[in-house]
């Protein structure tokens, strides 16, 4: 292999892919932490609230729905940018629904269950859609659903990084109320936290991050759920001033490692990233349930 060739591979494919993995790992882990603290539920995560499925539905409607249209409109609509917009719109529709419901329903556990049901609902709609779709479109959607860190161009990586970092900066003022929420909503309120406003703020950041991440790399399972647990276990604290940076660091490392494994070293094969994260994530969650009688936040 000539120098030019590997330089091309390294700078145009491998490095953007690694950066994408780092950004995705950081973003999903932070969203998972936000959800777990807000809902005081160790099983909360971006996919649990149905935000990921909402983004998925947006993409499904676009990819498979356009199959029913004429050839020209299809080419115009089936573009990377439109997929991005569709996913963000889908994520925010679900998020808006949850926001509206959370105004009526105070019980956070109920909101989690509603999130799961919304997820099931969108999966069902996707199922029905796929039944009426041509094989090509279905395959395109299926590939998106596997999750892929490798298809972003350099320019897209820049856009992706900017959005993720804006999200992170927006989290800084949340560190204090997130800590108060560790004591429950009543204590938090007594310490001066505006619960309603804080909840909305957290949900908007979580929705934005999940929508953008899902749009760029597809739904990636278990990172958001597992990384906050690993961070709390390793650093033995719930203090968000420590856990948030810890989660960002660990999330980046874990998805980077998962991506390296998915690349299947010494071979030309690439396994879907989602298969790897699930392969590690699912047993970890089971282990957590068995070994930790009490869930700690």
């Amino acid at each position: 292999m000539s120098k030019d060739t590997w330089e091309h591979i390294l700078f145009n494919f491998r490095i953007p892919k690694s950066i994408t993995a780092i950004l995705t790992g950081m973003g999903l882990s932070v969203v998972g932490l936000l959800m777990q603290t807000l809902f005081r539920n160790p099983m909360a995560g971006p996919s649990v609230l149905g935000i990921s499925s909402g983004a998925g539905l947006g993409v499904a409607l676009l990819v498979m729905g356009t199959g029913l249209l004429s050839r020209q409109t299809m080419d115009i609509l089936n573009h990377e940018l439109t997929i991005l917009i569709a996913a963000i719109v889908g994520a925010f529709v679900v998020l808006l629904l949850i926001l509206l419901l959370s105004a009526k329903i105070k019980n956070t556990l109920s909101i989690l269950i509603i999130g799961l049901m919304l997820g099931a609902l969108t999966t069902a709609i996707v199922g029905i859609l796929s039944y009426f779709t041509k094989a090509e479109q279905l395959q395109e959607y299926m590939f998106w659903g596997f999750g892929s860190l490798g298809h972003l161009t350099k320019k897209e990586v820049w856009i992706y990084a900017s959005i993720i970092f804006i999200g992170f900066i927006a989290i800084i003022p949340l560190l204090k109320p997130l800590n108060s929420l560790l004591l429950g909503e009543n204590y938090a309120q007594n310490m001066g936290v505006n619960i309603k406003r804080t909840k909305k703020y957290i949900l908007i950041i979580a929705g934005l991050l999940t929508g953008v991440i899902t749009a760029f790399v597809g739904p990636i399972a278990f990172i958001g759920l597992a990384v906050p647990h690993i961070a709390r276990l390793l650093f033995n604290t719930s203090n968000h001033k420590i856990v948030v940076p810890a989660v960002i660091l660990i999330g980046a490392i874990i998805l980077l490692v998962c991506d390296s494994i998915a690349q299947l070293p010494f071979s030309e094969q690439v396994v879907p990233i989602n298969a790897i994260t699930s392969l590690f994530g699912a047993p970890l969650v089971i282990w957590l349930i068995i070994h930790k009688k009490k869930y700690h936040f």
Binding site: R40, K176, N179, S180, L182, L183, G184, N186, Y187, M191, G192, V193, R232, N236, T237, S238, N239, K294, Y295, H296, F297
Partner: peptide, 19 residues
């Protein structure tokens, strides 16, 4: 009400009063 489970130390909890 019981506090939600967390890994806060007694000191961290007292400090929270200053919030």
């Amino acid at each position: 009400e019981k506090l939600p489970d967390n890994l806060l130390t007694a000191y961290e909890l007292i400090v929270m009063g200053r919030q």
